[in-house]
Design a protein around this nucleic acid. Structure first.
Length: 854
RNA sequence: GCCGGGGUGGCGAAAUGGCAGACGCGACGGACUUAAAAUCCGUUGACCGCAAGGUUGUGCGGGUUCGAGUCCCGCCCUCGGCACCA
C-alpha cells in the first residue's frame, strides 16, 4: 500500500484485476438467494453524461451491497442501439449507421469501465445486432399469430423534423418526445400492438407493485390509461331508423340534456344528412374542424374555442322522450368514447360553455346536498329554482331534481338504477372506456428491427416464417430524409418471394419502434447468447422478476408501460409466470449545473453549455470520488446540483480514510488469525466508544440501504471516520484490545465504503492484510451487535412545559422513578418549577423528561 | 382546472410525535509556511448579552397533544405530469 492516495493508479489496477478474474460474472442456479439489479440501458449517443453516471452509481452501490450480503447478484449492461441519431448521422454526414453506433458503443464501454461499475460484461447485448433483433421479430410473429398486432390505416402522429411516426405516448403534449417539435397528423398504414387489450390488467396489477414503485409513476400511468366507468345510451334519430350512441359517466344528469353533440368525423353523420338542406353547411363545418385538428400543434396549452353547427336532426331522449337538437362540434373527439355525447350544460363545464355561446337552454337536474339535506331528508318535490341563471356548471354529485320518477335520488343510486333501466328497455348498457390507445409500432426508419411481414399480390399479408428469421437489415441504404423508410429504396431487400405461393412479393419496409427492443431486453440478459429462442425459460425463471430497477422519470409512461404490457403478453404466450417484471423502481433525479450568465440550475446539456464531462472528472478526482459525491450530495430521487467543491470534499474524505488505514496497517496487516473479541471490561472507555460507534453505524447503514438512502449512509461513514480520527491511542502504543476495536472499525468502514468507492476500498482491504482474498471475493458485510451499539451513558433532556431547560445524566437502565427524582432535583430545572404546581411528569425512558407545571 | 411531489441555515441536506439543523460544501478565525496552496484545530440559524445565559426559529393561519418540522383542517408558493377524455 502506498503512503499516499493515488486514485488513478489504484483504479486502473483494480479495474484490470476485476476484468481479468471475471470478478462480477455470475451464474444462475446458485444456492444463494438471487438479486437482479438493473439500470436502464443507455442509448449509445457517443458519450456518457452525468445522468448515466448517477444511474450506474446508484445501481452499483446496490449491487455491491447485495453481493457483500451474500446474494447472487445479476448486474448487466447493454445498448439500446437502434434509433434516430444514428440515422441522422447517416443523413447528414453520410456515415453508415452501424459503424457510427459501434464506434459509440466502443467509446462508451471504455467510459463505463473507467467508472469501474461491477457489470457482468459477458452478458452485454446490443439491440442492433441480428442476434438480438431476430427475437424482436420473433415476438412480432407470436403476437401476429394471436392477433396482438394488426395493421390499419390511421391518422398517426407525425414528427415533421424527424420524418417519422410517433406513438401516442411519444407525442404526449402534442410534441415529439425526443426533439420537442410539434406533432402533426398524417394518414398511414401502420402496425399496432394491442396494448388496449391489457388496459384493465395494467391498472389492476399496479396493486402488486404499489409498495415498490413511486406513487407518481403509478399515478402517471393510471392517468394515461384513463379508465372511466359510465354507460352507453342510444338516442333515436327522429324520422330515421338510426340511433346515435353516446358515452356518459353521468347518466344521472340525462334529464338535463339539451342536445346530442357529435364529432365532425363521426361516420354516421354523412348518412344521416343525406337529402338534408343543411348537409352542405355541416359538411363544410366538419371539413374545417378536421383541417384545424390536422394543423393543430396543441403544443401550447391554450384551449380551442368551441364551435358547432346545428344539423337540423332531432334526437329523442330515451328517458324523458324529449326532442333534442343534434349538433356537430369541434370539442367532441372521435377518438374517445363513441364520438358523440349528450350535452348537459348545467352539469358539465364544456357543455355549459357551448350552451352559453349558442344560447341553448340550461336546465339544472342535480341539486347540491347541503348538510340539512342529506339524501334521507331531501325533499324530491322541492326542486331547484330554474329561473336564477347558473353562473357555472355544477359538476358534483347531488340529488336528482326535475328528473321524472328519478327525482330525489342521490346521484350514485340513480346512476346504477338508470343504467339498469336502460338495459331493460334495450337502449343502453354499462360501459367502461379508456384513454389508452393501441401502441403504433411502425417507424419509417432504416435503423430499427425490420417488421417481418411480406405483401403478396395473391396471398395478401403473409408473415415471414420463423425459420427465415432474422430478416436482416441490409448493409446500407440511401439516406435522403424523405419520410419514407430508406429500406424502400433497397431493391434486394424489398423484392422477395411469397412464403406461401412463391410468387413475387415485397417486404414491409417499416421497422419497429425502438421501444420494442427495450420492452424485453432485461430478459435477454439472463440468457444473452441463446440462438434457438429469446431466452431459456428456466434461466429467466431463476433471475426474473427484477428486484430493483433504476432510471430516469422520463420513461414513467413510455418504456415502463410498454415493458409491463410486454411482460403480460409473454405471460400469455407461456414464457413467464408472473404479471409484473419489476418489483421495485427507483426514479433518480436530474443532474443539473449552473448556466453561465443566468446562474440558473438546468439539466446538463450541450446546447446550454453547462455539461460536465465524466472523463474529465474521473481524470481529475478519480471515479471513486465522483461516485461518492454523486451518492452523497443529495437523495437519489432529488435533483443533483453539480458542484466541484463537493467532489473535492469527497476526495478529502477518501484521503483521510486512506491515511488512517495506512497509519494502522503496519500493526494490522499481519495475516495472523484475527483475535477473539475482548470482553468489554478489557477495553478502555475510548475503545468501547469506538466499538459502539462502529456498531451504531453498521445498524444505521443497514437501514439506509433498505430505503436506498445512500446520502445518509455516506454521512454515517463520515461520522465513523471522524470518531476513528479522534481515537486517542496511536498504533505504536495501542494494546491488543485497542487494536481489536480499531481493526473492527476500519474493516467495517472499508467494507461499507465499497458500494460507494470500490477501488479504494479494495486497496485498503488489501492494506489491512487480507491474504485470504479480495474484498470483492471474500468480504462479508458487517453485522451490528445491538448490545455493543447501546449507549452506556445518556444525557436526558429535561423539559418544563415542553421547553428544554436542562439535562440530566443517566444510563439506559435508570428506572423511571429515578429519572423523575433527578429531574425534579436538578438545579436548573428547579429555577423554572419552584413556586409552581407540578401537574404531571412525563417520562419517556431513555429519551426525555417533561415536567408540566401550572 | 385535475392529479402527484415539495417548501427546514448562505448552499446540498439530516431528524420511529420527544435535544431541529447530523453529515458535507461555503464562510470566518487560528496553527504550520518567507508566502500561497494543501493539511490540521476552532467558530458558524437569527436576535439580545462582555459573559453566564436568555429569546426566537422548520412557507402562512388555526387545531390535536405534556410535547408538532413530523398528525388534522384551511390557505399561500413552487416543481412535475395530464389537460376539451364526456
Amino acid at each position: 500500500m502506498d503512503e499516499k492516495y493515488f486514485p488513478e493508479k489504484i483504479e486502473e489496477k483494480w479495474q484490470r484485476h476485476w476484468d481479468e478474474t471475471g470478478a462480477f460474472e455470475v451464474e444462475d442456479g446458485d444456492a444463494r438467494p438471487k438479486f437482479y439489479c438493473l439500470e436502464m440501458l443507455p442509448y449509445p449517443s457517443g458519450f456518457l453524461h452525468m445522468g448515466h453516471v448517477r444511474n450506474y452509481s446508484i445501481g452499483d452501490a446496490l449491487a455491491w451491497h447485495k453481493r457483500l450480503n451474500g446474494f447472487n447478484v445479476l448486474h448487466p449492461i447493454g445498448w439500446d442501439s437502434f434509433g434516430q441519431p444514428a440515422e441522422q448521422a447517416a443523413i447528414k454526414r453520410g456515415i453508415n449507421p452501424r459503424d457510427w453506433t459501434e464506434e459509440n458503443i466502443a467509446h462508451m464501454r471504455g467510459q463505463l469501465k473507467r467508472l469501474g461499475i461491477s457489470y457482468d460484461w459477458r452478458r452485454e447485448i446490443a439491440a442492433h445486432t441480428p442476434e438480438y433483433y431476430k427475437w424482436d421479430q420473433w415476438f412480432f410473429l407470436k403476437m401476429y399469430e394471436r392477433g396482438l398486432v394488426y395493421r390499419r390505416k390511421s391518422q398517426v402522429n407525425w414528427c415533421p423534423k424527424e420524418e417519422t411516426v410517433l406513438s401516442n405516448e411519444q407525442s404526449s403534449g402534442g410534441v415529439c418526445w425526443r426533439c420537442g417539435t410539434p406533432v402533426v397528423k398524417k394518414d398511414l398504414d401502420q402496425w399496432f400492438a394491442r396494448i388496449t387489450d391489457y388496459a384493465e390488467q395494467l391498472l389492476e396489477d399496479m396493486k402488486e407493485i404499489a409498495d415498490g414503485w413511486p406513487e407518481r409513476v403509478l399515478t402517471m400511468q393510471r392517468n394515461w390509461i384513463g379508465k372511466s366507468e359510465g354507460a352507453y345510451v342510444d338516442f333515436a334519430i327522429q324520422n330515421t331508423d338510426a340511433k346515435v350512441r353516446v358515452f356518459t359517466t353521468r347518466i344521472d344528469t340525462i334529464y338535463g340534456a339539451n342536445a346530442v353533440v357529435m364529432a365532425a368525423e363521426h361516420p354516421l353523420l354523412a348518412e344521416l344528412l343525406e337529402g338534408s338542406s343543411l348537409k352542405q353547411d355541416v359538411t363544410e363545418f366538419a371539413e374545417r374542424v378536421r383541417a384545424a385538428a390536422r394543423n393543430r400543434t396543441n403544443a401550447s396549452a391554450e384551449e380551442v374555442v368551441k364551435e358547432g353547427v346545428n344539423t337540423g336532426l332531432i334526437a329523442i331522449n330515451p328517458f324523458s322522450g324529449e326532442s333534442l337538437p343534434v349538433w356537430v362540434a369541434n370539442y367532441v373527439l372521435m377518438e374517445y368514447g363513441t364520438g358523440a355525447v349528450m350535452a348537459v350544460p348545467a352539469h358539465d363545464e364544456r357543455d355549459f360553455e357551448f350552451a352559453q355561446k349558442y344560447t341553448l337552454p340550461i336546465r339544472q337536474v342535480i341539486a347540491p346536498l347541503t348538510h340539512a339535506e342529506e339524501p334521507s331528508g331531501f325533499d324530491p318535490h322541492l326542486g331547484v329554482d330554474q329561473s336564477t341563471e347558473m353562473k357555472e356548471a355544477f359538476t358534483e354529485y347531488g340529488a336528482l331534481v326535475n328528473s321524472g320518477e328519478w327525482s330525489g335520488k342521490p346521484s350514485e343510486d340513480a346512476k346504477r338504477e338508470m343504467v339498469q333501466y336502460a338495459v331493460e328497455k334495450n337502449f343502453g348498457e354499462a360501459a367502461i372506456t379508456y384513454r389508452l390507445r393501441d401502441w403504433g409500432i411502425s417507424r419509417q426508419r432504416f435503423w430499427g428491427a425490420p417488421i417481418p411481414m411480406i405483401y403478396c399480390e395473391r396471398c395478401g399479408v403473409v408473415p415471414v416464417p420463423e425459420k427465415d428469421l432474422p430478416v436482416m437489415l441490409p448493409d446500407s441504404a440511401e439516406f435522403k430524409g424523405t419520410g419514407e423508410s430508406p429500406l424502400a429504396g433497397v431493391a434486394e431487400f424489398v423484392q422477395t418471394t411469397c412464403p406461401q405461393c412463391d410468387g413475387p412479393a415485397r417486404r414491409e419496409t417499416d421497422t419497429m419502434d425502438t421501444f420494442v427492443d427495450s420492452s424485453w431486453y432485461f430478459f435477454r440478459y439472463c440468457d444473452p447468447r441463446n440462438e434457438g429462442e429469446p431466452f431459456d425459460k428456466e434461466k429467466i425463471a431463476y433471475w426474473t422478476p427484477v428486484e430493483q430497477y433504476i432510471g430516469g422519470i422520463d420513461h414513467a409512461v413510455m418504456h415502463l408501460l410498454y415493458t409491463r404490457f410486454w411482460t403480460k403478453m409473454m405471460r400469455d404466450i407461456g414464457l413467464v409466470e408472473f404479471n409484473e417484471p419489476v418489483m421495485r423502481l427507483m426514479t433518480q433525479g436530474m443532474v443539473t449545473n449552473q448556466v453561465e450568465g443566468t446562474g440558473e440550475w438546468k439539466r446538463m446539456s450541450k446546447s446550454l453549455g453547462n455539461g460536465v464531462d465524466p472523463d474529465e472528472m474521473i481524470a481529475a478526482y478519480g471515479s471513486d470520488a465522483v461516485r461518492l459525491f454523486i451518492l452523497f450530495a443529495a437523495p437519489a430521487e432529488n435533483e443533483l446540483r453539480w458542484q466541484e467543491t463537493g467532489i473535492e470534499g469527497a476526495v478529502r474524505f477518501l484521503r483521510r480514510v486512506y491515511g488512517m488505514v495506512y497509519r494502522w496497517h503496519g500493526r494490522l496487516s499481519d495475516s495472523s488469525p484475527r483475535e477473539v473479541a475482548p470482553a468489554s471490561e478489557e477495553l478502555t472507555i475510548e475503545a468501547r466508544a469506538l466499538r459502539r460507534k462502529t456498531h451504531q453505524t453498521i445498524a444505521r447503514i443497514a437501514q439506509d440501504f433498505e430505503e436506498l438512502h445512500f446520502n445518509t449512509s455516506v454521512a454515517a461513514l463520515m461520522e465513523l471516520s471522524n470518531t476513528l480520527g479522534d481515537f486517542k491511542v496511536g498504533p505504536t502504543e495501542a494494546s491488543a484490545s485497542d487494536l481489536y476495536a480499531v481493526r473492527e472499525a476500519l474493516e467495517s468502514l472499508v467494507i461499507m465504503l465499497a458500494p460507494f468507492a470500490p477501488h479504494v476500498a479494495e486497496e485498503m482491504w488489501a492494506g489491512l492484510g487480507h491474504a485470504e482474498g479480495l474484498l470483492s471475493e471474500v468480504a462479508r458485510w458487517p453485522q451490528a451487535n445491538d448490545e455493543l451499539a447501546r449507549k452506556e451513558e445518556l444525557e436526558i433532556p429535561v423539559q418544563v412545559n415542553g421547553k428544554l431547560r436542562s439535562r440530566i445524566h443517566a444510563t439506559p437502565d435508570t428506572p423511571e422513578a429515578e429519572l423523575r427524582t433527578a429531574a425534579l432535583a436538578d438545579e436548573k430545572t428547579r429555577s423554572f418549577i419552584d413556586g409552581h404546581e407540578i401537574v404531571k411528569v412525563i417520562i419517556v425512558p431513555r429519551r426525555l423528561v417533561n415536567i408540566v407545571v401550572r
